[in-house]
């Protein structure tokens, strides 16, 4: 039996997808409430995505309220939705890349079968090539990242 200890696994990643959708919906609803607009659920999601992705400062001015989180009449307020949205998106990409690397390491994927759209150096089945930053000597040339996910490996 394999016990899953990684914080990113199918359970948490699926919840991140759902959570991202909810963040967008609640943000769109907050925008519509503030601007006295009427949007459909789909419209709220689209508007929320636009705000979270491109106007984080505007998102910070909205009172983003969640519905269905507590069985009461009081408000459930979501804080720092734009930051959370950016992190969730980055985590999804990070998890996807990790899984591709794991697949390649299992040698179930032939390097020659990669689609031509994938650019960059070929992977030689060595994790060191893929670590971020790959080497201290060149790390100074790489812009610093806000969330050092590589440390979590």
């Amino acid at each position: 039996m394999r016990i899953e200890y990684d914080y990113l696994a199918p359970d948490s990643i699926n919840e991140i997808f759902d959570g991202l959708q909810l963040l967008r919906q609640f943000t769109g609803e907050a925008w519509a409430r503030k601007n006295k607009q009427v949007l459909t659920e789909k419209g709220c999601v689209q508007k929320g995505k636009e705000i979270l992705d491109t106007k984080p400062n505007e998102a910070a001015t909205l009172e983003i309220l969640a519905s269905g989180f507590e069985n009461s009449r009081r408000k459930v307020v979501i804080l720092k939705a734009a930051d959370a949205s950016a992190i969730f998106k980055e985590l999804i990409i990070y998890y996807g890349v990790l899984e591709i690397i794991r697949l390649i390491e299992k040698k179930t994927v032939k390097l020659g079968s990669h689609p031509k759209s994938i650019t960059g150096q070929p992977i030689q089945n060595q994790m060191d090539q893929l670590r971020w930053p790959p080497d201290e000597s060149i790390s100074s040339s790489i812009p610093s990242r806000q969330y050092p996910f590589w440390k979590m490996q």
Binding site: V77, I78, L79, K80, A81, A84, I87, Y147, K151
Partner: peptide, 15 residues
């Protein structure tokens, strides 16, 4: 009189 939820808190403040 409200409930506060901060998603992705672990990545912002509690790695």
């Amino acid at each position: 009189e409200r409930l506060l939820l901060m998603p992705a808190y672990w990545f912002m403040y509690n790695m």
